[in-house]
Every structure is written in C-alpha cells, then in structure tokens.
C-alpha cells in the first residue's frame, strides 16, 4: 500500500482570514509530490501545520509522527553571522556539510557570510542544509527561487538523489518537471 500523510477536516485562520477551511486530503508520498494551488490558498500554511509549526484550529494530521522532516523554507533562513559552512554544519557534521555544499557548487564559497553570497547561492546553502540534515522526508517551499537553469537542474538532481519522499510547493510546471515523475495534489 502506498504511504500517505492523512489530513482530515483541517482548518486554520489568522484572525478573520480563513487560510484553510475543512481541508481533507491523502497526501501521497510517491517520490515527489507537488502541491498546487493559487497563491495565498494555504499551501505554505499546510506545510507549517504538517511540520507542527502551527496548531490547526480544527482537524487532524496522521502520518507525520516519528518522522524527521528536512525543510527548505520559502525564505533562506540562514544565520546572518555564520558562514555557509557554519550554517549547514549547524545541523549536521562538518564533513557532511562540506560534501553537500560542494555537491551544489559552493565549494569555493563555504567561508563566506550570507551577505557576501548572491540570492541563488543562499538558496543553494538552504538546500544543502536540508540535504545534510538527513531527514526522512523533504519539505520544499519554492526551493528554486533565484536559481539559474543549470543550478535548478543540479539542485533537483541532488534532492531527488536523497531517496526520501519529497513534498514541494512550486508555481512553475517546468520546475516540477525537473524532478522527473511526480504526483500532484491540489490545495484549496
């Protein structure tokens, strides 16, 4: 049987604004699952609920207990006072951090601070951090923002090579196709 994360009657509002309302789904963990939906429909909120960063106002989530998620957030979330290497080795061993940074073409930039890196480089550091963590499921929220085509392909290859289920939010079909075959789930 295919593994899923089960979401039942999930609701979440911020003040008067209903972001998710009575949302139910079986999220397939089929290699790569792309979450689709218009902007502001609640995809990122769903991620946050799945990761336990927010509590739902109603509903339940099953299938996340005991999992070790690794995340590429919508923003890079790098420590501004730490080098690229320190940012990645914060959550892994230094050897793993060096390996992942090198794999993403940042071998020459490891000792640089985020403010010294371009937007695309910072994004790759965030991806390297998620890979170095060694999670058993990857949550990617617009992971390729700011990357050129070559780096998008390299990053997608590295992420797919992790061999764990991937949940990804992207607005761009071409970006989803970088992973090869993928499942889709509509949110909202």
């Amino acid at each position: 049987m295919r593994e899923t994360i089960s979401v039942k009657h999930l609701s979440k509002a911020y003040g008067d604004h209903d972001v998710l309302h009575d949302f139910s789904a079986e999220i397939p963990l089929c290699g790569v699952t792309v979450l689709r939906g218009a902007s502001g429909i609640g995809k990122t909120t769903l991620f946050r609920l799945l990761l336990g960063l927010e509590r739902p106002d109603a509903g339940e989530i099953r299938g996340m207990d005991g999992r070790k998620p690794a995340v590429v957030f919508q923003e890079d979330r790098l420590l501004p006072w730490a080098t690229a290497l320190e940012n990645v080795s914060l959550i892994s061993g230094e050897e793993t951090a060096i390996l992942e940074l090198s794999r993403l073409g940042l071998g020459e930039n490891m000792r640089q601070l985020p403010k010294e890196l371009s937007g695309g480089m910072k994004r790759r550091v965030a991806i390297a951090r998620a890979l170095a963590y060694g999670g058993d499921i990857l949550f990617l929220d617009e992971p390729f923002t700011g990357l050129d085509e070559d780096n998008k392909r390299a990053a997608a290859r590295a992420l797919a090579a992790a061999g764990v289920p991937i949940l990804v939010i992207t607005h761009d079909d071409a970006e989803a196709e970088l992973f090869g075959a993928y499942c889709e789930l509509s949110v909202g």
Partner: peptide, 21 residues
C-alpha cells in the same frame, strides 16, 4: 523567530538554539 523555527525543525536542542541563535 524564523531562525528559531528553523532550529526547531532541524532538531536543535533548546541549549543550542540559545547558543547559536
């Protein structure tokens, strides 16, 4: 808080969150 959240998601202990963030 987004950095603190990042630390929690990546399993940093409270002590490491205090020390590193």
């Amino acid at each position: 808080v987004r950095l603190v959240e990042m630390g929690r998601v990546f399993g940093l202990s409270n002590w490491r969150i205090v020390k590193k963030i």
